[in-house]
Nucleic acid binder design. Structure first.
Lengths: 116, 116
DNA sequence: CCTTGACTTGGAGTGCACTCCAGACTTTAT
DNA sequence: ATAAAGTCTGGAGTGCACTCCAAGTCAAGG
C-alpha cells in the first residue's frame, strides 16, 4: 500500500508517516522503484504508534520500545520495565485529565444554576 | 506571597508563573516596589490554570476563558460554550489515553504469560 | 510526447510552552 | 557597609512533533 492510501486510512499526514519512519518508529518500509509499499507489518505498527501518540507517549519512548522489540527476546524484561513506566505515566495523566474534567463540569453546573 | 514561595507551593517554576501572567492567565498581580505579591485571588487562579494545563488545555483557550470571566456576566453563554467544547475535548482525550493504556496492559499480560 | 498527479529526498520552518539569561534592583543577614 | 539571596524585565534559546518546501523521479492517460 502506498503512502497516500495509508495516510488516508490512518488519518496521519504523509509527512508524519515519513517522519515516523525516519525516527525508526515503524521499521523498514519496502520500496518499489524507490516508492514506499507498506506491508501489513508496517501497518500494524503504524496503528500501534498512532494509538500511543494519541495518548502523547513521546516519540522517543516509542522508538526505544520498538528498538527493543527488534532486538529480540532477551529484551523482554527491559520492555516490560519500559511499558510499566508508561502505564504509570498514563494512569497519572488520566487522573489529571479527570481532575480538570471534573472541575469543568462543576463550573458548568454552577453556571447553569445561575452562579456568578 | 512572593514568587519564590508560590513556585515552591505550586511546583511551577518562577518563569512559568511570569509566563502565565504575561499571557493574561492569572490577571493583575499586585506589586510592592516592583516585586510581585500574589493575592488569594491570584493563587486560586493559578491553581485553576495549573489544573487545566495538567490536562493540556492550551494556554490560548485558558486565556480566552479568563478574559470572558473578567468581562462580566453577560459572557456567561459564551463561557459555557467554551467550557463545553473543552469538556468534549477532554472526554476524547480520556478515551484515547484509555485506549493506549488498555493496549499497554494487554501487552504486559501477554509478555508475562511468555508471549513472543 | 507531454502533462498530470503521486511519490521521493534533505532540509528549513512552525507553533507551542516553556526555560534560560544578562544586567539591574531590593531585601536580608552579618 | 557589604555580601548574598531573591526578584525584576525583555528578549533570546530550547525541545518536541510535526509541517512545509524545492527540486527531482516515475507511471499512466490523452
Amino acid at each position: 500500500m502506498k503512502i497516500g492510501e495509508v495516510a488516508k486510512q490512518t488519518n496521519l499526514s504523509e509527512d508524519t508517516l515519513r517522519y515516523y519512519e525516519k525516527n525508526d518508529l515503524i521499521g523498514e518500509v519496502p520500496r518499489e522503484n524507490g516508492i514506499r509499499d507498506y506491508s501489513e507489518q508496517n501497518l500494524r505498527r503504524i496503528s500501534f504508534v498512532k494509538c500511543l501518540r494519541g495518548a502523547e507517549v513521546p516519540v522517543e519512548v516509542i522508538r526505544k520500545y520498538v528498538e527493543l522489540v527488534d532486538a529480540g527476546e532477551d529484551t523482554l524484561p527491559e520492555r516490560i520495565k519500559l511499558i510499566e513506566a508508561q502505564r504509570e505515566a498514563l494512569e497519572q495523566k488520566l487522573a489529571e485529565i479527570q481532575a480538570a474534567y471534573d472541575k469543568i463540569v462543576y463550573k458548568i453546573n454552577y453556571y447553569q444554576k445561575g452562579g456568578k
